[in-house]
Structures are given as C-alpha cells and as structure tokens.
Amino acid sequence: MEKNKYNYLVNKYTPKENRLTNGVISFLIGGSMGVVGELLRRLWSNILDIPLKDTGTYMIITLIFIGCLFTALGFFDNIVNFAKAGLIVPITGFAHSMQSAALEYRNEGLVTGLGANIFKLSGTVILYGVVSAYVFGLIRLLLFGG
C-alpha cells in the first residue's frame, strides 16, 4: 500500500512535459536549421564562387563553429532546454557534445583530462558511424558492386 501511495505521489508531482508542444517545437527549430543550412550553402557558394555541390563542407564547418562557440559561452544548454531535439539532431549537437566534454575535463589536465575525454560523448557517433558504414558498404559492394 505504501509503495502504491508513494508512486501515486511521485507521478502527481513529477512535472509533466507536454509531448505535443515538444514535438512541434523541435519540428519548427529543426526545420529552421535545415533552411539555415541551405541558406549557408548558397551564401558560401556566392562568396567563394564555387559550385553549390561543393559547399556542404563549408556549411557544416560553419554550423560546427557556431555550436562550439555557443557551448563555450555557456548558453547552448539553455537553448537546448527550449529547442530539445531540434538542436540535438542537427550537426550542432555533435559539436556541442564534443565541446562540452572538452570544457568539462579541461581542469583535469591537458592529457589525462582533455585528451582522454574529448571523445567521451561524441565518440559513440564516430564508432557506430564507421562500423555501420563499413558493414553497409560491404553489403552494397557485394550486392551491387559499388
């Protein structure tokens, strides 16, 4: 009985997050990030006078720089609290995970802290990205010949 009552009380006072609002917000913010990405591509294409196809790299570096800078300045977390997955899923989330690990472990020394832990959060993306790309690439190579 006590346990049921406890669970009931916990459920009652746990702040309820509105899933619908979260979804709408992350759709809008994520979509805006996509539009920003496309705009940046065109911008770099105009500035550097290179074909649109090759500007993806410049756009990604720009977004990574913005994500890292905002994290280092300390207000990226506040924006993520509002924007949720809208900023975690785009490449800014990758930059954020690397930058926040770097900042957090910086105090423990340059080698044992920063060097050993910079990939602590973002390493999973690289590891599983590489492993899956290798396996799927192998499948494609065997099925379609590249």
Partner: peptide
C-alpha cells in the same frame, strides 16, 4: 523541402526522446 525534411528528422528524434528512456547519445547514434 529542407524545412520539411530536417524538421521531420528532429520530430522523430524528439518523439523517441519523449517516449523511451534513451538518451540524446542513443538517438544521434
């Protein structure tokens, strides 16, 4: 198109985050 696709991917990510116990690390992976 860019808005719709990027928005949809983020929406799916948010739905996974809200309805399961997976962390953002799981979702990005």
């Amino acid at each position: 198109n860019a808005f719709i696709f990027a928005g949809l991917v983020c929406l799916i990510g948010q739905i996974i985050l809200d309805n399961t116990k997976l962390t953002p690390g799981h979702v990005t992976t």
